[in-house]
């Protein structure tokens, strides 16, 4: 039994990728859950808005690269991020003004909001295609690896290699910072508390003199930041393809619902839960098993589900939660 090599294989193929992916999902789900908590609808345009913010960031990155601006070992995209966030914030604020506010005033049913968000999704999708096209784009620069496979092998003397890409580490670090900042804002500042109050009890928030339109604007700006950061990190980690951002909608929703719609802590927990399940279920465990039980010939890959079906994992998690605990693990808004 070779526990060390098994552990390294596990870290390399399951833990590190899932942690990075989980961080991306957590940021996405935070955005969904905030919008749900304040505006009370599931935003189907979320993925395409993420794609838009990422596209703007990529264009800015290219611009900076052509000017010779760089962040050394860090990706230039980090520097371009504020531009992407600002553009996305303007776009979603404009969308709110032009689309959602009308239904808010009307107190329309949530499903009408969802429907409107589908229209917005179309428009965002078209805008993204317009600015950057439909093809795959890579925009990561700076150092590729923090730990490279070969260096690790030489250093540890193990047969199994371990790679930690800088984008993966960056994803986790940025997510931690963003989450800390968000929780500080929500729990410590007057504006953040007002947001939570509005999410808790809209009418009472009005009676307390909280300006709903201000809360809504603030929510969109924060959501725009979360969406753009999530999208850029996802793009840095996996490469950017607009259609992937539509597809990531399902795991993001699953994460938000698992955690309990409206609950920020839940969104983060849900993001990691979905990501770890997805990676664990689609990873061929034969290699890890080979180290742990050297004599055993499993006669298969020990892969529960092909990677093509990774969305099925989100779906199953979603179904299980809806069946047994529709308010989610952290008791979000009622059913």
């Amino acid at each position: 039994m070779d526990i060390l090599n098994a552990l390294v294989a596990f870290l390399n193929f399951v833990f590190i990728p899932a942690a990075a992916y989980g961080a991306q999902l957590a940021l996405g789900a935070l955005g969904v859950t905030l919008i749900y908590g304040i505006l009370r609808f599931s935003n189907f345009a979320h993925g395409d808005t993420m794609a838009f913010g990422t596209a703007i960031t990529i264009l800015t990155t290219w611009g900076m690269q052509s000017l010779g601006i760089s962040l050394g070992p860090l990706p230039t995209a980090l520097l371009a991020l504020p531009v992407g966030i600002a553009a996305t914030a303007l776009l979603v604020l404009g969308t709110d003004r032009a689309v959602y506010r009308f239904y808010r005033v009307q107190k329309a049913a949530p499903i009408i909001f969802v429907m409107a968000s589908v229209g917005v999704m179309f428009v965002m999708n078209g805008l993204t295609r317009l600015v950057i096209g439909v093809d795959e784009q890579r925009f990561d620069d700076g150092a590729r690896f923090i730990i490279a496979v070969r260096d690790f092998r030489e250093w540890s003397g193990l047969a199994e290699g371990l790679a930690l890409r800088s984008t993966q580490a960056l994803t986790v670090v940025v997510t931690a910072i963003v989450c800390a900042a968000l929780f500080w804002f929500l729990n410590r500042t007057k504006a953040g508390k007002a947001m939570r109050a509005y999410s808790d009890n809209e009418d009472l928030a009005l009676l307390s003199g909280i300006d709903p339109e201000r809360v809504v604007r603030l929510t969109w700006i924060i959501a725009a930041a979360l969406m753009t950061i999530a999208g850029v990190l996802y793009g840095l980690d996996k490469s950017f393809r607009p259609f992937n951002y539509f597809q990531i909608l399902l795991p993001i929703f699953a994460a938000a619902i698992v955690g309990g719609l409206g609950s920020p802590v839940g969104a983060i927990a849900g993001g990691f839960l979905v990501a770890f399940s997805e990676v664990a279920v689609t990873y061929p465990w034969v290699k890890v098993a080979g180290y742990l039980f050297p004599g055993w010939e499993p006669g298969g890959l020990l892969q529960l589900l092909g990677t093509e079906y990774k969305f099925a994992v989100s779906f199953v998690i979603l179904i299980v939660v809806l069946l047994f605990r529709p308010t989610g693990l952290f008791r979000g808004k009622s059913v």
Binding site: A197, D203, L204, S208
Partner: peptide
Amino acid sequence: GFVPQTHNIFPTMTVEENLEMGAYI
């Protein structure tokens, strides 16, 4: 100041935060 008949607190916020929100203006 008005205390409605139902839904008159912010349930997920702490007592102190509830009072702070009362003083929002």
